[in-house]
Amino acid sequence: MLYIDQFVYTNKMRFFHPGEKLFFSLITMIICLLINNPFMHLTVIGVMIGLLVGKARIPGYVLGKILLVPLVFLLLGVITVALSWNNDGIGMLASVRIGDYFLGTTKEGLMSAGRIFLRALSSVTCLIFLAFTVPMIDMIYVLKLLKVPSLIIEMMLLIYRFIFVFVETAFHIYTAQSSRWGYSGFKRSVYSFGMLFANLWGKVYFKTRFLMESLLSRGYEGEIRVLYATPKFSGKNIFFFVTIDLALIVIALALPVY
């Protein structure tokens, strides 16, 4: 998340209304989940990667790295779908004999593994599109528009901000420790990490107190009320996104699965 964050705020689709991007991503994902058509799934993967690299200008290698994570999971998952076993090896494209049984893969097995893989990957690319184009700040704004309770909004606001403060604090402690040979061996590492963790909580406590003081001095009365920079809906963008989704449905209808 910290890694993605550097690119989210500079992506070229940043100033699209976050609601447009959220709904585009969610609706496309729903289409992927409802319609089981590998051609369409491939198109979705292509469109999302195309949008991210071509329009949002996310560097290809960054996207590749991020995509690698779900890819590994997906591959491990579908392998179990592709494999099957029987006791004569008939109908298998390839098989290994284990005792009286044959472990192998059939044409149908491969096909359904491929379909599941594409379906899952296309849904994941929809989410990655969202993660790369909508910064958390804008996401919170959309949730507020959708009338999510203010308690949750406030928590998200504070957590998101302080993740960075704490990661930075932890990193400073780590640097200070390792510069004094705190991670020189396994035993020392365990000890130092324990110290880091314990001290981090102490710091959290003081941070909370200071934060409370500074909030109070700015008129805090129990509710964090803020104004959001208001993005505007653009007819052009909505048209663009709707066209893509309609095209996907057309593809799904025009190229039926045989």
């Binding site: 700040i137 606001l157 504070l158 500074s214 964090i224 104004l227």
Partner: peptide
């Protein structure tokens, strides 16, 4: 002091 990730907020 800065409690929000957004400068504007």
């Amino acid at each position: 002091q800065l409690f929000s990730a957004s400068v504007y907020q």
